[in-house]
Amino acid sequence: MTKFLLTAAVITGLLAALANLVRRKWLFNILALAIQYVCIFIVFPKTDGFMHALIKIIVGLMSTLIIYLTIQNTGAVKREPFEFKLSAGELFRMLSAVFLVTLVVLASPWLLKEVFPQSNIYILILSLGLALIGLLQLGSKTESLYVIIGLLTFLSGFELLYGSLEFSALLEALFAIVNLLIAIAGAFFIVKDLETETP
């Protein structure tokens, strides 16, 4: 059961990140970001109890909420009808991400044995997958909302990996502050762009 749950969380988390990379529908992206944090909560090591994993999900969902509320209140990003058909750019991003995730899945057993023996295969696949998809998003998008989502994805992947290697309360507090400030920065950019667009 645990293995099934972990596998499902890893797959869902990676699919959510992939959805964020490929599509540009803000409500869909926000939802995918929230799902991503839930999956991280499931996979996060719980050897010292639930508290650390709980901090991650609370901070993650709060960051998501900050971005959601900003967009909702300002109407900064227009709601567009959802289309299933993929454009060439979306297809390219999807294939790049699939290629990277495949590489991560193939390299993870070796990485687990040689570099990160303290971690486990589920954490390694989800964390490296999220970090690489986040990086791809950072490199392929320029709109502030999507860059911020890319940053949060990249950092959540790294935090998951680091959480399996070492725990420090100070570091956790700093990570929480950084995540929340990045979300606030995202909100700041959304409002600012709206102000400059409005005559």
Binding site: S144, V178, F188, F189, V191, K192, D193, E195, T196
Partner: peptide, 17 residues
């Protein structure tokens, strides 16, 4: 954290991000 805190200074309101 310094980089994130610097954002309002480097890109103040009234200018496009």
């Amino acid at each position: 954290l310094v980089a994130v805190v610097s954002i309002p200074l480097l890109s103040p309101r009234g200018s496009r991000s």
